[in-house]
Design a protein around this nucleic acid. Structure first.
Lengths: 276, 276
DNA sequence: GATACGACTTTCATTCATGCAAGTCAGTTT
DNA sequence: AAACTGACTTGCATGAATGAAAGTCGTATC
């Protein structure tokens, strides 16, 4: 679109000169030799088509237009400073995009210790639609079966059982999500096998749990959630149809990226099969 | 301080790649050949000490850290876009710093037509202290006598007379500024010759005029102000001791800067001597 | 299963920017 | 008045970045 892409490095030098008021001073502060500065500013003026400096005998002074440009671009130095800090100091934790089911995400969020992960930060992305790890829509996925594509790296995690929970055996009926696309397997199973016993629906899994805790009905939960909730009792044997392994899936190449690797290790530890 | 100055051009290319998702795409959009992009990104990674890309078979994908950097630096493109616009389109008016006395500044502000000056915009700087035009603390000065330094360009403008004004001859006493350093010549003259007739003082010349209009006393004003105010009557002959020429002063080199030149011409026209 | 394609990397001659040293020029000092 | 100083510009040899073409590697197509 715009042929004359403004050179940001020249611009940065320009700002330094504008602040210093002379080539000599700016040259020292930037560690750039003075002749280079002189030539680059000449080029910069040509490229902008403006006269930015008054080349007086007493040094460089900004023209009116030069001052306008300097004030226009003043944020540049802040950006540079911020990035320099990011590069050589902070190294803030990098966000690692994780896609997982609702309960697994919640379990993970509570298991992972943020202070022990200086390298990465979990970023849970909703997994309603099936995100395509192969297309890097997320970095790490936790799935209930191994991926189809051979390009994805996989690792088997713990076995996950589901069961029916409630605050007591006297509670009848079920609380679940409304029927619709993108429903988790456990909710689909409930709709298929106990569809006529559904007492209430709620739009959010966590809300279903709250309703169950209030006595509105029974819920189907992963055992790692249901067993951890002291106010709930297991009201059935594990549901065979819903038993599955959890699989940790990531892109073959992404897993060598340090933050992602760290995330993979931490997640694997949190969701390890008991035997491992 | 920081040896490894981050290269803003590389960063900009990095953002383009991050947005595009591939070297090929970014190369076209930036007009930079693909091999160059490849090498510069390799160098950029070395300079930051981070792995920013996953070089997969399907193109470049950002690592977690790469995404962190991209979001950290996202403003850069806005800045660049804004500057590009500034450079090749808008050419917003450049601020020209003008130092002048209070009433002259006011007269100028009302005389200069902003729409007829696409090249520059007046920026009035307070002239309490004597600003040093030779040191470029301002671009243009309007003084009541020619400058001392031979390095400054000068141009004689209209003659300025002062007189005593009031809403009528019946008003006695004077309104003026309180005694102090940095007082204009007309106020000094009033304190010296009519010091015992001062009725009120105000901290601002404009406020003095308002007080005079309200009948609190007489004021000394330049005739170009007093005569233009229909509610005021001239109550004295022009004061000989305060008569002076106005001088338009600027730096010898600065006056060839187009915006400053335009400003000089406009000011000279607004404040021209009647004969010219 | 062989071939074509896409996306980058590498090679190499060339160009361009760099950085040192010398040059210019106005104002200042002695 | 002559020499000095400060602040930039110019010349020239060097080195680094560039860009066109060929190379590599994996995936998609037939």
């Amino acid at each position: 679109m715009n042929e004359s892409r403004i050179n940001l490095d020249d611009l940065s030098l320009f700002l330094e000169i504008a602040a210093t008021g002379s080539l000599t001073g700016a040259a020292e502060r930037c560690g750039v030799p003075l002749p280079t500065l002189s030539r680059r500013m000449a080029r910069f003026e040509r490229s902008t088509g403006r006269t930015l400096f008054l080349r007086g005998k007493a040094g460089y002074a900004l023209t009116a237009e030069g001052r306008a440009l300097a004030s226009e671009a003043s944020e540049l130095h802040e950006i540079r400073a911020r990035l320099s800090r990011w590069v050589d100091a902070g190294r803030g934790p990098a966000p690692v995009r994780i896609t997982a089911g609702f309960w697994t995400s919640r379990f993970l969020a509570m298991s992972l210790d943020p202070v022990r992960n200086p390298l990465w930060l979990p970023a849970f992305v909703p997994s309603n639609a099936v995100l395509d790890l192969a297309r890097r829509e997320a970095d790490i996925g936790i799935r209930n079966r191994p991926p189809d594509s051979p390009r994805l790296a996989r690792r088997r995690l713990r076995r996950v059982d589901h069961a029916i929970y409630g605050i007591g055996p006297q509670v009848t009926g079920y609380v679940t999500l409304p029927k619709g696309p993108g429903l988790a397997a456990s909710q689909r199973w409930l709709h298929e096998t106990h569809g006529d016993e559904i007492a209430t629906t709620a739009s959010d899994p966590r809300l279903c749990l709250d309703l169950a805790l209030a006595g509105f009905g029974r819920v189907v939960l992963p055992c790692f959630i249901g067993d951890a909730e002291p106010r709930l009792a297991r009201l059935s044997e594990p549901i065979a149809a819903l038993a599955h392994d959890e699989w940790l899936v990531s892109h073959h190449e992404a897993r060598h990226d340090p933050p992602i690797r760290a995330a993979l290790d931490a997640i694997a530890a949190a969701l390890a099969a008991p035997g491992d």
